[in-house]
Amino acid sequence: MPTTSTTTHVTLTLTDLTRMLRESAGEEEGVDLDGDVIDTPFMDLGYDSLALLQVIGQIQREYGIEIPDDAVVDAETPGALLALVNAGQAGQADAA
C-alpha cells in the first residue's frame, strides 16, 4: 500500500494505472491492457469519461493526492494521465 502522506511523493507507473483501471472500471473485451497502451486513447481502450472519473477517484484515495477535475478531459491517454498525476505530485512535493 503506497503511503498517503503528501510529503513523500510516489511516482505512478503504467502498471499501477492499469491495475486501477481494471479494478475501478473493468476491462473491455478484446483490449489487452498489458500491451503497448501508453499512448492509446482511453476511448479506444473502452473507457469513457465516467470510467476515468472512477479511476481518478481511486488514484486520489490510494495516493492521498488531489487531481484536478479537468484531468478527465485533458488526459486522453494513459501516458498523459500519468504525466499529469506525477507532475502534480512533484508540484505538491515542491510546495511542501
Partner: peptide, 8 residues
Amino acid sequence: IPSRLMPQ
C-alpha cells in the same frame, strides 16, 4: 456480465 459492466 462483461468486466466493464461489473463496477457500474
